[in-house]
Design a protein around this nucleic acid. Structure first.
Lengths: 334, 334
DNA sequence: CTGAAAGCGCTTACAG
DNA sequence: CTGAAAGCGCTTACAG
C-alpha cells in the first residue's frame, strides 16, 4: 500500500535526498525537479513514513494526554482545549483513556514511549507514582489533579470559589449543608471541600463530612431518595459537578420537593445545559478548555527547553441562577 | 533526558540485541541477564524510542480520528467509543480536531503519515476529496458522514427514525412543521430531512424547506425569537440536535410560550441532560459510542487484511418524553 | 542545484 | 543464551 522514498526517487529519476528536499523545505531545488518529484509522489500516493522522519530527526512532535474514562462534558473540554493549542503549536496529540479498574501502567508506558511529552488530567487517571515515573523520562505536566514535586501543574481555583458559593448559600439562610463528592487528597474536590469547610466554620455552622458518592447521575438520584426518606435533613446541597446536581434537582422535584424553596442545590462546572434546567442551576464556571490549552503550552515550552512556572491557577467564577434561592432574571447575578 | 538502548547495554555489560530481547519477548534469555538489563534500564529511566521500534518493524499500531471542532457531547462520545475499542485491540489513537474554517489538508496529511489507519467522523471535518485521497494511502473508514465508494462506512439509522418521530408529532395533531439543521448531501441530517419529508407527505401535510441554521444554542435562541415575532408560524419543531432543542424550548418559555401545548419541540441524540429538562425532551437515541467502537474494529480488521462490510447501519430509537406533547410519566413510552 | 553517505534507535534473523 | 550485522525509511550536513 505504501510507497517509499526510494520508489518516488526511482520514478522521478533523482536521488532520495532530492526527493526529501523537494517535498519539504522550500529551498535549494529547481522548480522543474520539484514538480517532477511532486508528480511522482502523487502518482504513487506517497506518504512519508512518520516514524522514519521522527527517527531521522525531523521535528514532528507529539504530545500525549491521559484522561479518566468518564463521560460528561468536562473531560471532553479538557481534551479539546489541549488539542486546539497543541495543533497550533504543531504538535499532534495522542489520546489515552484510562478506566477506573484498568491497570494504567502498561498503557501509559506505551504512550510515553510514543510521545515527546505528557499531560495527566484529573486524579483518577493515574496514580502519583506512575506520573512520577513517567516524569523522569518525559516532560510531564498535571492538570486538575494537584501538584507533584517538580512538575508544572495547572488547575482551576477551587478553595475560594467553594467558600464563596457556600457563603452565598449561608446568606440565603441555609444551615443544614451537604457536600457531595469523593475526596482524594490533593484533588480539586478536596480543595473545594476545604473551601466549603472554611465558609461554614466562619459562619459558625456545623461542618458535615462529605457524602462520598461518585460524581454521576445515579448518585444524584440515590441521594434525592435518601433525603426524602430522611425527611430532608439538608436544606442546601453542594454537588461536585453539574450532572449530579441536575439529577438531584430533578429527582427531588419528582418526589414533590420544591427546589430551591425546600432545598437549594448547586453544582460545579457550568456545563452548557445548566442554564436550561428549571430552576436554572447555580454553579461555578471553570475555564476548562483553558486548562487544557495551558497544559499544551507548558509542554511545548518544556520541549523547547524553557522553564515553566510550577503552579498555575486559573480563575473560576460563580454563576448565579435560581437553584441557590436567587430569583433574579437570568442574565444578571443576584 | 532519554537514555538509548546503547547506554543500557553498556551499563548492563551486554549487547544491544540482548537488551532488546530482555525487555521484550519472554524467550531465549537467562534470568540473571534479564534482571541485570532490567535494572540498568530502570536506573537510566530507559524508554524505548517508539519511532525506532516502529521503523524496525515492531507492531505498535496507531489509528487516527478526525473530528470537527465542535463542542457538545456527541463528538466526545464518538471519540471515547473509538478509543476504548482501539485500546482493547492494542492500537493507540491520535486525535485531530478540524475547525470549520481551517484548511484540513495539511493537518490530515500529517496525521495520515503518522498512523496506520484513519476514521473520518461527521461531514464537516474533511471534504470527500480529502478523504478519498487519504483512503488511497491508508485504510480508512467514515463515520456518520455518508458513504464514499469503496470505503467502509458506519452510521446510525436516520431516515426511518426521523419519519417515526415526525409521524408521532402528526399523531399529536401537529400540522405546521419546521426542521432545523443544515443539509449536506449524504449526511445524517440529510437522511433525517428525507424521513421528515416522507412522514409529512404521507400525512398529506405541506413540507417546509429546512431552516438552515447551524446546530448550536444561538440558533435555537434566535429561532425562538423569530417564531414569537412571527406569531408562532409552527406548532412543531424538529431540531437537528438536543442542544438546539434545549435552547429553543427554554427561550420559547421565557417568551411566554407553552411547550408543548403551543409548540412541540423534539431533539436528536438523547444527550444525558435531555431527561432533566422541563418538559423532558423527546428525542432520538443513537448508539454514538457504538459507532466509534465499530469504526475502530473495522480499521483493525482492515489492517489485518480482512474484508469489511461496506456499510453498517446501527439502530436508533425514539425516546418519548414530554416536549412532543406526551404526558406519560418518565420511564414509559407514550 | 544535486548525490553519496552517515546516522537516527531500534528489531530480528543469522551465527556461534 | 548471546553478539555482530543488516535493515527499517527517512533527513541532513558534506561535497561537488
Amino acid at each position: 500500500m505504501n510507497a517509499t522514498i526510494y520508489e518516488v526517487a526511482d520514478r522521478a529519476g533523482v536521488s532520495i535526498s532530492t526527493v526529501s528536499r523537494a517535498l519539504r523545505h522550500g529551498g535549494r531545488i529547481s522548480e522543474s525537479t520539484r514538480t517532477r518529484v511532486r508528480e511522482a509522489a502523487e502518482e504513487l500516493n506517497y506518504l512519508p513514513n512518520a516514524a522514519a522522519q521522527t527517527l531521522a530527526g525531523s521535528a514532528v512532535r507529539s504530545l500525549g494526554i491521559v484522561l479518566p474514562h468518564v463521560q460528561g462534558t468536562y473531560y471532553a473540554q479538557l481534551a479539546v482545549g489541549f488539542e486546539r493549542r497543541a495543533s497550533e503549536l504543531d504538535h499532534s496529540v495522542v489520546l489515552l483513556l484510562v478506566g477506573p479498574d484498568a491497570d494504567a501502567r502498561p498503557a501509559v508506558r506505551r504512550l510515553a514511549a510514543q510521545v515527546d511529552g505528557l499531560a495527566f488530567m484529573a486524579k483518577s487517571a493515574a496514580d502519583d507514582s506512575l506520573v512520577a515515573e513517567i516524569a523522569r523520562r518525559r516532560p510531564t505536566v498535571t492538570v486538575a489533579r494537584g501538584q507533584l514535586p517538580g512538575l508544572p501543574a495547572v488547575q482551576a481555583e477551587s478553595e475560594r470559589a467553594a467558600a464563596d458559593l457556600t457563603r452565598h448559600l449561608v446568606e440565603h439562610g441555609r444551615t443544614r449543608f451537604a457536600f457531595v463528592g469523593p475526596i482524594d487528597p490533593g484533588s480539586d474536590i478536596a480543595a473545594r471541600y476545604a473551601g466549603f469547610t472554611r465558609a461554614l466554620t466562619e459562619a459558625g455552622l456545623e461542618v458535615p463530612p462529605n457524602t462520598d458518592l461518585p460524581l454521576d447521575e445515579d448518585s444524584g438520584r440515590a441521594l434525592a431518595h435518601e433525603m426524602v426518606a430522611d425527611h430532608l435533613p439538608h436544606d442546601a446541597i453542594v454537588c461536585g459537578n453539574d450532572e449530579v446536581a441536575a439529577a438531584v434537582v430533578y429527582e427531588l422535584q419528582e418526589l414533590g420537593v420544591d427546589v430551591p424553596r425546600d432545598v437549594a442545590v448547586v453544582g460545579w462546572d457550568d456545563i452548557r445545559l445548566a442554564r436550561y434546567l428549571r430552576p436554572g442551576l447555580t454553579t461555578v464556571a471553570q475555564p476548562v478548555a483553558g486548562l487544557g490549552a495551558l497544559a499544551a503550552e507548558h509542554l511545548h515550552a518544556l520541549l523547547a527547553g524553557e522553564d515553566v512556572v510550577e503552579m498555575t491557577v486559573l480563575p473560576t467564577y460563580l454563576v448565579h441562577r435560581q437553584s441557590c434561592g436567587c430569583d433574579a432574571p437570568r442574565p444578571s447575578p443576584c
